[in-house]
Design a protein around this nucleic acid. Sequence first.
DNA 1: AACAGAATTTGACCCAGATCAAGCAATATC
DNA 2: GATATTGCTTGATCTGGGTCAAATTCTGTT
Lengths: 248, 248
Amino acid sequence: MAHDDVQPASLACGDCPIQHRAVCARCDADELEQLEKIKYYRSFEAGQTIIWAGDQMDFVASVVSGIATLTQTLEDGRTQMVGLLLPSDFVGRPGRNRAAYNVTATTDILMCCFRRKPFEEMMERTPHIAQRLLQMTLDELDAAREWMLLLGRKTAREKIASLLSIVARRDASINMSPSARQMVFDLPLTREAMADYLGLTLETVSRQMSALKRDGVIELQGKRHVTVPDMDRLLLEAGDDSDGGFLI
Amino acid sequence: MAHDDVQPASLACGDCPIQHRAVCARCDADELEQLEKIKYYRSFEAGQTIIWAGDQMDFVASVVSGIATLTQTLEDGRTQMVGLLLPSDFVGRPGRNRAAYNVTATTDILMCCFRRKPFEEMMERTPHIAQRLLQMTLDELDAAREWMLLLGRKTAREKIASLLSIVARRDASINMSPSARQMVFDLPLTREAMADYLGLTLETVSRQMSALKRDGVIELQGKRHVTVPDMDRLLLEAGDDSDGGFLI
DNA sequence: AACAGAATTTGACCCAGATCAAGCAATATC
DNA sequence: GATATTGCTTGATCTGGGTCAAATTCTGTT
């Protein structure tokens, strides 16, 4: 998951052919050449499952463009989203060859993959890769823990408001000044995906969206296009004491 | 408490004075000497808050003995536990000087601390420390995500059964063969702490404990001492498809 | 042993969110 | 242009777990 400290500009790192913050921010020419040899691209269509939980993983990868979700399921079909993969996010872990989650493309997606074994060997020789991955993993852990608070203790309305403010914030950091009061963005998730993320049913998501609209917290044009007239109001509804999103 | 006196063999790494898997498993004599210089011990009593969210952190640390919890709170007082710190676990992150969570001792606890700046500098020079921390952080992330599934999608009864099976499993890995059908252990948590961990109220925890007892899934001697006559039954109640605990 | 205080259990009641079931709107297919 | 298909909304009803309150252990102290 990406974070507030990661500026979109930092995603493309100069003339690095991989253009990925996890592995190339501090790579020298020699290291980049090594990476070049073990890398390949894979693309998936929206809705495709990229990796099934339990699958053999012979690669680690980073998202170049598009969005994917990490989900866990109970055998009776209950599913919980446990993470989002946004451009520049990393998936797969050195040292383990089985996937722990389902990874599903929610939009068309392009992944930059590295063969696992050589990547691990390279990591041994190239300390700053482990350091960078540690940094990213710690960010993800913070995000996951923030989400635990949401899942365990927030009301449905607060959950929705939290998700909206997070998406708004991320969109804003890409499209406009993050301090603007009014924000406009498209939801990258269906109601069902929102429900899976928030630990709710899609009906409750829909009802709370309608409630927030009725109360003037948000405006909806169509189903995906959202206008937030007053971000402070939305953040208040989210129930966070802090200024909002660690998440995403 | 059982955990104070029993240390898994793997925690003590040879003649390393720090005896901590995060930082010394592959340290040579020279590195150990450096660590020795920046380390100190702190101890806390059960109930004490070790670190407040937002506090300045001038150290990173690992638990030598005892148990602590990581909690997040909303400003109206709702709290959610987001992690447990057990002996050998690491807390604090290189590269950030503000704590993100409250850390509270649930038993008397001894921590081995390293001054942050020199630790970071040492990490730069000593690749395997970052590699080890990455490994540990990835494990924690998996645990957090497993917990997200629990928080978002499991019923109260399943949550309790999950927690019990996790504690049983961890205890078993210390005290006896993990494959035994019957298990006996002490809960290291109060009902309130269990509730904070599971995203429930303490009344619901109590009720579900009683229900599991009534249904013969567990036996209770006193409030903390638990006997599980049939671990498979408990795991079934936990609703996991896998064989249980990534967690803890 | 008796008491105080905390932790836990149990009961009665309530409500947020789940479930079940229709309708509606937008897009894709023929 | 008619018709599925898919995603979303809304309504009616039910229920798991929350809330409030009162016992009942347990623990430590005098």
